[in-house]
């Protein structure tokens, strides 16, 4: 039984930005959760992504610095070329080890380590993409009791990545453009 939630980890590749931009405005300060976004992106030198996301939400948006303490109402964005992991003391750590699924940051790496720390209070969202990254991570999240959300492949710009997920594991919520409010209702579950 998943929830209530402390953290949402969003993984996205090609075509996923628009869905993130749609979700962000729903994040209001009365929702006490932290968000970690792992995008497959090319360069950290472009700070425009952080700016772009900041304009869409009341939450603070920042690129992950190593040892950042995870706080509610903050969106942490994985830096290009680093894996992001979560420690038991709820800090974020960075790792430049081998690419996973040809990616660094890899969505699997963050999903798996978040599952290990947060268990039932983790929600993972896998969005559009052309890569198989994220599916193993969703399985790990599910095994630890986390809540699994996948963008509806039919409505994703690039269906391959969410399609892999829906084919390989049960999904708790299939996300499309007009049920984001359902997702947010889940996040508003009262803390025990």
């Amino acid at each position: 039984m998943a929830g209530p939630f402390d953290i949402v980890v969003i993984g996205g590749s090609a075509g996923s930005l628009s869905m993130v931009l749609q979700i962000l405005p729903y994040l209001k300060m009365d929702i006490p959760i932290a968000v970690v976004v792992v995008f497959h992106r090319k360069s950290s030198e472009d700070t425009t992504l952080i700016e772009l996301l900041s304009h869409r939400t009341e939450f603070e948006v920042k690129e992950v610095d190593e040892k950042d303490l995870i706080r509610p109402n903050v969106v942490y964005v994985a830096p290009a070329d680093y894996h992001v992991l979560i420690e038991k003391d709820h800090t974020l750590s960075l790792d430049v080890s081998e690419k996973v699924n040809f990616c660094r940051p890899s969505i699997d790496v963050t999903f798996e380590s978040a599952a290990d720390v947060y268990g039932k209070s983790l929600m993972c969202i896998l969005l559009s993409g052309a890569n198989a990254d994220g599916v193993q991570g969703l399985k790990a999240a599910r095994d630890k009791g986390g809540f699994v959300v996948v963008q509806d492949p039919a409505s994703a710009e690039v269906s391959y990545m969410p399609q892999q997920a829906t084919e390989q594991l049960p999904v708790d919520l299939l996300l499309h453009d007009d049920n984001i409010d359902v997702l947010i209702d889940c996040l508003r579950l009262p803390k025990r």
Partner: peptide
């Protein structure tokens, strides 16, 4: 799923392929 808003929550008939590889615990 008692307190989740369950409407619109869907399940796929996918296999739960359990990983068999050894996973060390924190301990």
């Amino acid at each position: 799923m008692s307190y989740l808003p369950c409407y619109n929550v869907i399940y796929h008939n996918a296999d739960m392929n359990q990983e068999t590889s050894l996973d060390l615990s924190d301990n």
